[in-house]
């Protein structure tokens, strides 16, 4: 478990599917905006602007962002802390001491279930961090391993 770990390549597919769902929702809202603009005579440039943003967003959320996020995401589980690096345009590096961990749980939505992946969420008293889209068996292993580290840390305290 020690050493820097990357997410599996299938995480890119998960994020692409999330991106697709976002685009569908955005598209529906765009259609509603067009209908409302026509009914209530709103300026058409608002629809035009949103359409341009929508068209530019398609390659970003379906192609570039998932790959970029996968490249930049790392997690490392050490004896005394968990290190998570995540982010797209701004890289976020999170340090969570093992002694601060209060809860660890695994969650799996329908997309993750289909690909046999899961999210591992780590809670402290003041924050919540997630290691997304890792193989389900690995997620169970990580949860067990971190729980053991937390127990050892509590005993040492």
């Amino acid at each position: 478990m020690e050493g820097r770990n990357r997410l599996p390549i299938s995480a890119i597919n998960v994020w692409r599917m999330h991106g697709l769902i976002e685009l569908i929702i955005f598209g529906i809202l765009l259609c509603i905006e067009l209908v409302v603009s026509l009914i209530w005579d709103w300026p058409i440039w608002i629809f035009g602007l949103l359409l341009i943003i929508f068209i530019l967003y398609i390659p970003l959320c379906y192609v570039f962002f998932p790959k970029l996020r996968w490249k930049q995401f790392f997690y490392e589980i050490k004896n005394d802390e968990i290190d998570i690096q995540d982010g797209l345009l701004i890289i976020k590096h999170t340090l969570i001491p093992i002694v601060k961990i209060q809860k660890i749980y695994i969650s799996q939505g329908p997309i993750l279930k289909k690909l046999d992946l899961a999210n591992v969420t780590i809670n402290t008293a003041a924050s919540e961090e997630t290691i997304p889209a890792i193989p389900y068996k690995t997620a169970q292993g990580i949860r067990k391993y971190i729980s053991q580290l937390v127990t050892v840390a509590d005993e040492n305290e």
Binding site: I91, L95, K100, S127, E129
Partner: peptide, 10 residues
Amino acid sequence: IETIYFYQSN
């Protein structure tokens, strides 16, 4: 301190 975050943009 519960958690420390470092943020860095390009």
